[in-house]
Amino acid sequence: MRDLHLSLNQTQRVRLEAALHELQSLTPAAASAAAVTVADTIPVNQEDNILKGHGTSDQDGEVVATLCGVVERVNKLVYVRTLRARYKPEVGDIIVGRVIEIAPKRWRLEINFSQDAVLMLSSMNLPDGIQRRRTAVDELNMRSIFEENDVICAEVRGFQHDGSLHLQARSEKYGKLERGQLLTVPPYLVKRKKQHFHHLAQYDVDLILGCNGFIWVGEHVVVDEKVKATEDQQKSSDEAENFTPLETRKHICRLANAVRVLSALGFTLTVELIIETAEASASSNVEVNDMLGAEFYVQTAEREAKRRADLLRKKNGAR
């Protein structure tokens, strides 16, 4: 409800409330019981010496939450998992970011973290693909690789001694993203998975779920393009390859709107759910621009409630 301001009519409001209520009843009671707000005491057994993790502090011998979220316990560790907060980087995360500044030997990227991330010229592959020392000429040509406002996909390399965050892009799959849409969602909706790059072959679309809540939906690019001669590529890319077929563009918009609806409803974004939502919209003849309307919004909530109910039933049946 954060990003979409809808005018629901009476029936739609009732249906939405019913669907959300259904979702609430489906979540295990333990999950909602573990919810804490700022300054709530977290009950712990004082005897076993626990470790206080993120979002907790010690006040007069009690463990107190400093954030709103859900208490998680892993062996001795007790921490609070936040819901709505900025991105907390972890080494190896795949992220999507936007270049905001070009500094000597580095690019600065906005990645929804509390600071700007740094991508060093030395920690990315050069376009010619040769491993060598970066020269002054390379440094001068940095703008030909990434310019300001370019959208980039990279990987979190780690924190430096001074506390700044460094990225790397040492693979063909990382780099500039073109011909698509960038969507920003709250980072807690993207779960860390093995696979964050998805090629949806049926749509000819690439979907990148960045751990920082930046999601890229764009035309599929063939990675091993680099095998071709570089001069050849430059010429052809200007004219013929700048063209994206209308059909693909429609698919991109449909998937992007599916992401928008799901994030506005606060559902975890998985590829399966995004595809399912896009497919449901296509099969029920909802136009791309109507996907952000009230009716589809309510339908999505109902479908998700049904899906989770089915999952739960299957799980219980298996037992």
């Binding site: 959300l20 979702l23 609430q24 489906l26 979540t27 999950a31 909602s32 919810a35 804490v36 707000t37 700022v38 300054a39 709530d40 709103c68 979220g69 859900v70 819901l83 709505r84 807690y188 909706l189 409803l265 606060g266 559902f267 975890t268 998700e304 989770r308």
Partner: peptide, 17 residues
């Protein structure tokens, strides 16, 4: 205020699933 925040947190967690 704590009631409001707790309710909001629970709602977000439920929807996330």
């Amino acid at each position: 205020i704590r009631e409001v925040l707790l309710e909001n947190t629970k709602r977000l967690e439920c929807q996330r699933g």
